[in-house]
Design a protein around this nucleic acid. Structure first.
Lengths: 204, 204
DNA sequence: CCGCATTGCAACTTGGAGTTGCGATAACCT
DNA sequence: AGGTTATCGCAACTCCAAGTTGCAATGCGG
């Protein structure tokens, strides 16, 4: 029993199941981006994927698990970590990459789905946590390098600086709903840099 | 024909309907704060309010409209606008008041509900927009006074500064899920102030 | 090319949303 | 106070999507 891996199990890379996944997960993302999570239907995903509803329920515990799996596969390719030689350049590149990832209609819809539904779907809360944890962990060298170069105060808290960088972008995305563009990114970078230099982002 | 006001109509302040509203709206907020929007049931709200399900459907178009109405009534008492004499003091007071409003379990649950469900419920999107528009509009004098006193550069954009102030708080609330306390508020105030003084928050 | 796991399919249960008709009742007006 | 009218309680109903189950068909791996 329990022959197939549901949700958390690693995906098979060969055989019939892999083709099934290769059809269902993109179909799920497309449905998410078009109808939104509210309008998403397992039936609809199945039809778009050219697969039967039952097959989906046999491979994923339920709809939230399916959506979490699809989103995880989408966020697998994360934003690149820059190394331009200066903090200003690195922070600007980071912010611009973040903005770019939420500037396409699909990318924007998917991140908003994660943030919105994480409040009630534990599976998406896990996706969200993994997403931010991973990004902050990977981006940390940008700050430590800057400190080593003497561009930033030694007591600067990397995580705090990165949060200050990301916060305005997500704030516009989630709270005010304003358009997010490169100007937003560049301003966020300048604000974060000014804050760090003013020594208001010290490690605890 | 259309005798009663549904949803957007102003609430009657006397008669049977007012007692009904006075029972249903708080019951809705309680249900929201305990079971969350996902687990919220019109049936459940009706029972908690000691009212019949049909009555709710006769007074509100549907569940989202009911929730929007309840949330609007909750956010009616907004955060106070300080006037301490200095920008530093005003910004700190603003940030602390904002933090306080999301520090109670109920307040936190309700604002998260608004932000999360606004992505798919137009009624809550309206609540969200009204909430932020109103707050930024009311808080603007804090910045204009600071500019008049010469504490901030004349080209400082009030809205931009206030967004910079609020962003880190909402970012923690929505994205990282970290606890939000007075330290968060004070740091947000310092960051916003440093940014304004570094002249990176100019009006367009 | 054969056995077994996986898929397709249809029919089913469950549960909440929202609706309707009717009898009961409380509010308002004279 | 008394009659009119709007509102509420109640029960029964439709609708729709979630998730389940038994069985037949089919494609994959050895």
């Amino acid at each position: 029993m329990e022959s197939a891996a549901t949700s958390t199990g690693r995906a098979p890379t060969v055989g019939r199941g892999s083709r099934m996944r290769a059809a269902v997960l993109p179909a799920t993302l497309t449905e998410l981006a078009t109808t939104g999570y509210a309008g998403l239907t397992v039936e609809g995903v199945a039809q778009r994927a050219g697969v039967h509803k039952t097959t989906i329920y046999r491979n994923w515990k339920d709809a939230p698990t399916l959506v979490a799996d699809a989103l995880t596969s989408h966020f697998a390719t994360d934003i690149p970590i820059p190394d331009t030689g200066t903090v200003a350049g690195d922070l600007r590149a980071l912010a611009r990459a973040l903005v770019a990832s939420v500037s396409t209609p699909v990318g924007r819809a998917l991140i908003i789905t994660v943030l919105a539904e994480a409040a009630r779907l534990p599976q998406l809360a896990d996706v969200k946590r993994a997403l931010f944890d991973d990004r902050f962990r990977r981006a940390e060298p940008v700050v430590t390098r800057a400190v080593e170069r003497g561009e930033l105060p030694a007591e600067t808290d990397p995580a705090e600086l990165l949060k200050t960088l990301a916060a305005p972008i997500y704030f516009r995305l989630v709270c005010t709903g304003e358009p997010v563009d490169e100007g937003t990114a560049d301003r966020a970078a300048q604000v974060a840099l000014a804050a760090a230099r003013a020594r208001v982002l010290p490690a605890a």
